[in-house]
Amino acid sequence: MNAADPVVQMQDVQMVFTSVDGDRFTAVEGLDLEVGSGDVVAIVGKTGCGKSTTFNLLLGLERPTSGSIQLLGHDPHKEFDWFRSKLGVIFQTDRLLPWRTALENARVGLEILDYSEKEQNDIALQWLHKLELQGFEDAYPHELSGGMRQRVGMARAFCLTPEIFFADEAFGHLDQSTARRLREVFLELVTESRKTCLLITHNIHEALEIGSRLVILGKPGHVLADMETPTNATRAEMAEFEDRVLDIIEANEVVG
């Protein structure tokens, strides 16, 4: 694989769910997407338009009904185990294992990658502290607030040094000021390591702040627009950009 080759390549991907009653539901249809190495792509779109489903497909957790998906030149579903240690995910819901403490949850990825116990704890603690969770290392998920749980889930992802980062509304459950601080932590991590990163968000400011590119998805999951984000934009430019994005999303709604 050449450096110039896209890290993520989706071609005409379709995902149809079939319920037990045989009802078919198309969640993704005709999705084409390419992401280059080191790109930070923000993905926006209406609720239920298939953003999380797209992530599941990219992670190899679901098999597309048709179309082809390549990550780092490999098929994430067919070559499932090839992706060991290559993918890092912050899920939309925290998905903390209830029987593990914050620390044990944060280090689960390191356990799977067979790090030594000392390394596991050192790295996990470092991230828990960086995410402002000191004092809660031994708390079980039900003893934490929603935002704290989400941050443990972030620590779990940040502990790893994957090739590609996926973040599904990582900052959605936090108050504005915490969200901003953590976005900075995230941005620092991503830019420092030059990781390829896909980021789903409902917050267009967040998309502008972190992403260098913005992909707007329509329903069922396909690309409506794909644009560079303005850098160092003034308030007025930001507002204008936001209006444009919302217009595109709403235009799709009317047609659909």
């Binding site: 060991r84 993918l87 995910v89 998905r95 799977i112």
Partner: peptide, 8 residues
């Protein structure tokens, strides 16, 4: 899914 993404 959370664990499978880690390829255990």
């Amino acid at each position: 899914d959370m664990l499978r993404a880690l390829r255990p």
